[in-house]
Design a binder for these strands. Structure first.
Length: 458
DNA sequence: TGCAATT
């Protein structure tokens, strides 16, 4: 059964990319769809590129420039095979960077030496970046294989905001060869007081951590220097999801920690967004709705399957205090998808019976016990009428963000205001876990919903 | 207390 569910999951992921491609972002055809290269208007010229062509990553591009604006800039170094501005997959927002492949390898080398760090596009506070894309250094037999950069890239926090790249380099150069050093800056060019430092090896990075973390306090910093490995992709994804949830004023206690499921959750989100976009008016669905769709899909999935996955006492005891007590997916102990969970999931309450306060968001326990609120199967997206659980099982949640700009969305998410469990112990567990949970700038206040007939205490 | 921008 478990094997079968895993296969199904993969099938869904595949379908997701297929339908996305159907909407016009197949890697092979992106250039055509964007109408930006391949000598348009000359059908006799079939675009060809060298076998050893280099895909370049272009960074520090003003967000108001699209492919057609960038094309002239790069064309002077050779014929462009493909140029793609990176956009956010849900909002379509320009990410400020692009991929560029020339037909000839030589053109790429020329462009890189002429442009990289050499010139600053209007409105930018840092010079343009032109270098081989990360994908170019991985896996190619003819390329020098580089170690993955996430094990050797450091995040440095608690810097003085006046410190420059050079200052940071000087601080870190004793511990190894620094390949990249970047101060993080806001849109105004001011330092955010933190930086990335990339060494050539993991050992060098580790040495820098050992020597520098907490070693000193920079003038004006609120605590001592922070030196740690930078976030992984997964952590970044989660961070962004949480930020977005905060910004958009959405609260979905089930969906947020789903970031922890990484690739699978992402595949689902893509699939759902693509699906929604295709049934909408042909073009891009409004971004709010697209994101909401993804959230809804995840919530529905969670309620149907993963939320009900029982956690064994063993998995609890090994999860430790701070480690997320969420099962990896697919879980061999889960009951799969589309099968309504039975009431009274074993051991769910035991997970946090010892008062563990699971932070951060990733640690939100996926197995409180069954949430009794009815939620429709994925396709119909309109929640049923709200249903309450027995007394002592219903939570009331204060401080939900209220930035909804869209009345429909408001209606969609209204049911999340109340959360009902099928037994009081689970409700208490949820309070323990979620009270104080931070969303954006706010912290949730979670307590038992007062019985209707209770006297108001004040 | 701050994690860019790599489809």
């Amino acid at each position: 059964m478990y094997i079968k569910m895993a296969t199904l999951a993969n099938g869904q992921a595949d379908n997701a990319s297929l339908s996305t491609n159907g909407l016009g972002s197949s890697p092979g055809s992106a250039g055509h769809m964007n109408g930006l290269s391949h000598s348009p208007g000359n059908p006799s010229t079939i675009p060809m590129k060298d076998h050893d062509a280099i895909k370049l990553f272009i960074g520090q591009i003003p967000r108001n420039l699209d492919e057609k604006d960038l094309k002239p800039l790069f064309e002077e170094f050779g014929k462009i095979y493909e140029l793609t501005v990176l956009k956010d997959r849900f909002t379509g927002m320009h990410k400020g960077c692009a991929f560029l492949t020339y037909c000839e390898r030589e053109s790429a080398l020329k462009a890189q030496s002429a442009l990289h760090e050499q010139k600053t596009l209007p409105g930018m506070n840092r010079p343009i970046q032109v270098k081989p894309a990360d994908s170019e250094s991985r896996g190619g037999s003819s390329c020098l294989r580089q170690p993955p950069s996430q094990d050797r890239k450091l995040f440095v926090g608690m810097l003085n905001k006046q410190q420059s790249e050079d200052d940071v380099r000087r601080l870190f150069e004793a511990f190894g060869n620094i390949e990249e050093c970047t101060i993080l800056r806001g849109p105004d060019g001011n330092s955010k007081g933190c930086a990335f430092v990339k060494y050539s090896s993991h050992a060098e990075a580790q040495a820098a951590i050992n020597a520098l973390h907490g070693s000193q306090t920079m003038p004006g910093a609120s605590s001592s220097l922070v030196v740690k490995f930078a976030d992984t992709d997964k952590e970044r994804t989660m961070r962004r999801m949480q930020q977005m949830a905060g910004q958009m004023g959405m609260f979905n206690p089930m969906a947020i920690p789903f970031g922890a499921y990484g690739a699978y959750a992402q595949a689902l989100m893509q699939q759902q967004a693509a699906l929604m976009a295709s049934v909408a008016q042909g073009g891009y669905l409004n971004p709010m709705a697209a994101f909401a769709a993804a959230q809804m899909q995840m919530a529905a999935l969670n309620m149907n399957g993963l939320a009900a996955a029982p956690m064994t006492p063993t998995s609890c005891s090994t999860s430790g205090i701070t480690a997320p007590a969420v099962p990896s997916f697919p879980s061999p102990i889960g009951n799969g998808f589309g099968i309504p969970p039975q009431a009274g999931q074993p051991a769910a309450e035991a997970v946090f019976a010892n008062g563990i306060h699971p932070y951060p968001a990733a640690a939100y326990p996926a197995a409180y016990g069954q949430i009794s609120q009815a939620f429709p199967q994925p396709p119909p997206m309109i929640p049923q009428q709200q249903r309450e659980g027995p007394e002592g099982c219903n939570l009331f949640i204060y401080h939900l963000p209220q930035e909804f700009g869209d009345a429909e969305l408001m209606q969609m998410f209204l049911p999340f205001g109340f959360v009902s469990f099928d037994n009081p112990a689970s409700a208490q567990t949820a309070i323990q876990a979620m009270n104080g949970f931070q969303i954006g700038m706010k912290r949730l206040k979670v307590q038992l919903k007062r019985p209707k007939d209770a006297n108001r205490p004040y």
